[in-house]
Nucleic acid binder design. Structure first.
Lengths: 204, 204, 204, 204
DNA sequence: CATGAATGAGTATTCATTCAT
DNA sequence: AATGAATGAATACTCATTCAT
């Protein structure tokens, strides 16, 4: 049933581990963690159920691996975007919004899983990945706080402003459809403006 | 196992129907639609499984009923808030934000179910309740569009602004904890300001 | 698939609970606890898998229930046998051997389960049923110790004697075949003599 | 994951074959044949699953090999014990009991596997090893029968006596704990006396 | 000798749902 | 208005085993 060459077998998307990850991402997004069946995932990956268990000890573990991977990938993109933009909080915030919107659009599935399925992590995994959640907030609040401290962001409620900004950007992954009219650049432009207004960015 | 009088069961929360609704809301919020078992719901309502089926023909129907009920309740609150505030878009938007924030805080469970579980409605129910989703957007966009038309909201992207505003307000139900420091009034105040900045409200 | 009358449905051996117990006893004896599949048990009981779970929360629980039931039944028989035989240790020991041999022969399946499957009880059940194990020894050692104290049993190792006697009687359930030549009465007679020799019963 | 040299694995117990045998014995004793997983055995042997299959074609085969090995080892000990003790049935029986008790104590795991897992041999292996079972009885019955024939064993039921004696000795492997108070010599002494009483050994 | 990757049949258990009463 | 007993299909997961290398 399987051909001899491992790199080119009946598995559609590459080696077992990656095929599973891809399939799992799709199924988790479509039906949610509890609605997704491990059989569906295996079937979509073109693998047997047991092959899936060869790579991941449990459905829960698979979810955790996915969330971790996604989040680290998002951080990488943020770090890159923030790397060469200097110290100005507004510029930095704009870069962060740009990276985030881009991630929500280009990695829509991954975004939705990360945004929605955190709550389905069982305590041990939740504990282990807690720092990632914290960092996902800190990336934003560090910049917002700096802007407030430097007197360029005038919002009197930096915490809620940060929450609002993140929520607005995260929501993109829920409604965005690639066939829509707006280009990604326009979208980024819109959201940069919106977020800068949320933090009440004024130069004077 | 339980006596005949429904108010006399393990967790007496009123007659069967209401006890089920309350229990279902709790369980759906805690574990999500697919993670919730109809047995858990019946148990928490202090009723037998069969009693639950007397009131609701299926789990899916129960979810639909809950979502419908929640949404209509939210609309009622919005209508009341908007009833006597006149025509000024900024005032109306402030009233809408106030009603929404209040609902997210006072009806946190209901908010989360409505926000999260729409996607788990099967086509027939989704179709039937579609107009509610539309109206939930229209309430906001009507006001935003009016403000833009009247030249008091200066955002050049009213659709994204509306989405951002709604997303920010909806997210409150996810993070809000009653034992926190902020009062509800402060919260409303913050979010009214944030949303008015999102739509770029300026009088001049 | 099922007829309307519950007392006379497709279930072969009476109500669900009893049908399951009977089937479980058979399957556990034939293949052992781990070798027995809950599907086999349900099939043999003429019930669906789910019906089995209606009556017993788990396979482990089913085993525990069986062992408990068997052991209590055995105790009942011992108590009856010892009720009217007076105080003489030899007479009492003979009565106990008689009851035990009879139980091993008439309740062969139950005997084998009790003898073999104790070790497969998980800690919580093992703990709960521990006192039964203790009593199963005490029934014997009380009599043996009395005989030794009264100077009618001359063995200098009452503990090992008791163990040997019990082991000999328990083993009957392993090899006994009803179609064999010996009658039950002869068997009892043999084992009474053997056990009395094990404890070294001498009147002088 | 393990290096090429088998003596260098996680639990080095000699070459592959012996490591497997040792691990299998432990796991079979702890959980029984059906409760034992071939993966547990491989893991405990510090070998890969495939390595295990290199040495034994199947789990069933592994069990059969173990039982055969154990039984032949027991026979070897019996033969040695009986080699130089002359023709007196009582002396010979005492030697046999001595060898058996010693084996049950020194080879407790092996004893328990042999005693408990015979029933899990599939027909082909059971058939092949049948003669071993027969010999295990014959060793005893030859001596008992000789004693009866020579008028030194007075039991009128030599078959049941033999069964009782064997059962008593076999049971030692179930309850014996090395940290207990009795020495092996005392234990042998006790059981020799018990068995001689079982066969009703009297010189006069 | 030994491995990593894979499989298909099987495991115990839970699911939403039904139905006679 | 409610129940106890049952079902069939699905659940996540494990099993002994295989095979190309």
């Amino acid at each position: 049933m399987s051909t001899a060459v491992p790199t080119d077998g009946p598995i559609p998307r590459g080696g077992g581990r990656e095929a599973i990850a891809t399939a799992a991402r799709e199924v988790f997004q479509e039906r949610g963690y509890h609605g997704a069946s491990i059989r569906d995932i295996a079937r979509r990956a073109g693998l047997s159920l047991s092959a899936l268990y060869y790579w991941h000890p449990s459905k829960q573990d698979l979810l955790a691996a996915l969330i971790q991977e996604n989040t680290l990938d998002y951080f990488r993109r943020c770090d890159e975007a923030l790397a060469g933009v200097g110290d100005d909080p507004a510029t930095r915030l704009a870069a962060l919004v740009g990276a985030t919107v881009l991630y929500r659009v280009e990695r829509q599935t991954e975004s939705n899983i990360s945004n929605r399925e955190w709550r389905n992590l069982e305590p041990e995994h939740a504990e282990r990945l807690k720092e990632l959640r914290v960092k996902a907030s800190t990336i934003w609040s560090d910049i917002v706080d700096a802007g407030v401290a430097q007197g360029v962001f005038h919002c009197d409620d930096p915490v809620d402003a940060r929450r609002a900004a993140q929520a607005a950007c995260n929501a993109i992954a829920e409604w965005y459809r690639p066939e829509g009219a707006v280009t990604t650049d326009e979208l980024i432009d819109h959201y940069v403006k919106i977020v800068l207004r949320i933090v009440d960015h004024r130069i004077s």
